[in-house]
Structures are given as structure tokens and as C-alpha cells.
Amino acid sequence: MSHLGDRLTALVDGELDHDERDRVLAHLAGCAECRAEADAQRRLKQRLRSLGDAAPSPQLLTSLYAMGEPGGPIPPRARSMPGAAKPPVVARPTARRPARAGGQGGSGPARRGLKSGLESGVGGGGGHGAGPGHDLAPGRGKAGRRLPRMRYLAVGAATFAVFGIGTAGFVAGGDNGQLPRVAPALDQFAVEHALTSGDVPITDRDPAEEVTSRP
């Protein structure tokens, strides 16, 4: 049993002021039992710190990531009615201030918050105050939704362009423009045909010029 009581723990935690620390250290110099107790507490503290650096197993990470996947339909957000109490402020987990293990985290914490918390050596839920999955944290989840939205936008723009150009082309191709009205020069064609086929170069324009007989 230590002679210093809680002060020994405070010494190890570095919570003593200057004068108190001098007195405790003076006692330790002459008391082997308290020195041993102080050494034991320092080793315990170091071990606890080393435990915080341990990486979680991949199975655990996978399970936790799965908890962050989109679930079923999101229930409508409760609208605050006049006179009703304001909904609780949603706390968002951050990497700098992880929540305590076993905290009041909801069922749908953000993947990024979880991973950051785990990488900092502390497991835990999505922080206190998060509702039952209806308030997803910003970050990766939002970016994940932005990407398909961009895709839809690009596909929509391309479709619009194709249909627009196609419609314009179809409309522009329908008008024959200022086509001249032509009457083929049959007499000229008849002579040209005869000259290129070795035939008699005579016109064949008016049937009245030929003698017609019925067998």
C-alpha cells in the first residue's frame, strides 16, 4: 500500500503542481515501497498507451464499414412545429475528438468518422446524439452521391445534344431549298444517247412525228 495515496497517481499523470511534486519526489527518494508503486503505475500507463496504437483486425473494419452502407429508405425528417421543442443538435464524429467506446452512436455512422476514430486508436460509435441513421455525416457519403449525379448530368447533356443535333439535322434536311424546276431536254438526250450507243441520232420527242401502226 502506498504512503502517498492519490498523489502518487497524480504524480504519474503529471497533475501535481511544482511544490507538491517536490514533496512527493522527496518521499519517494527515501521510500522504496512507494517507488515500486510509482514504477508499477508508470508501466501500466505505458501499456495502456501501447494498446491504443494497435490496429483493428480487417474483419472488424469490414463489419464496421458495412454498418456505414446505405440502409433502407430514409424516414422523413421530423418537422419542428411551432411551440414544439427543437430537435436535438446532431453531433458529428470527427477524427480529432472520437467518442467514447459504447457511446450513444446511432446505427448509421459515417464511414469516414468511424475510420478516423479507429485509426486514432480508439474504437467507438458515431458519437453521441446521432439519430437512427437518418442524418448521415458529410464527407465520403456525400461525395459518393455526387459522382452518380455528375454521371446523370453528363449522360443527360449528351442525350440532349444528340437529340438536339439530330432534330436540327432532320428539320434542315427536310426542305428541298431552292431546287429548280426542270424539264429534261428530250431531243438533246435522244441525240446524245444515239451518239454514245452507235444508234441513229434522231430525236424521239413527239410521237406525232412517227408513223404508228397496229399489228
Binding site: L179, P180, R181, A183, F189, E192, T196
Partner: peptide, 25 residues
């Protein structure tokens, strides 16, 4: 444009010109 076709005995001329036919003729 005047295109001339034949199999050696028959001869067919095809005249093509841009425009719309004046059907009254």
C-alpha cells in the same frame, strides 16, 4: 450527267440532273 449502260446489244442511257420535275411538260 449522262451514264450509258449496255450488255453489248441493248443500250440504256440514264440522265440525272438536280432539280424538281416540271410535270406539266
Amino acid at each position: 450527267v449522262h451514264l450509258v449502260y449496255s450488255d453489248g446489244l441493248s443500250a440504256v442511257s440514264l440522265f440525272i440532273q438536280r432539280g424538281e420535275l416540271d410535270e406539266r411538260r
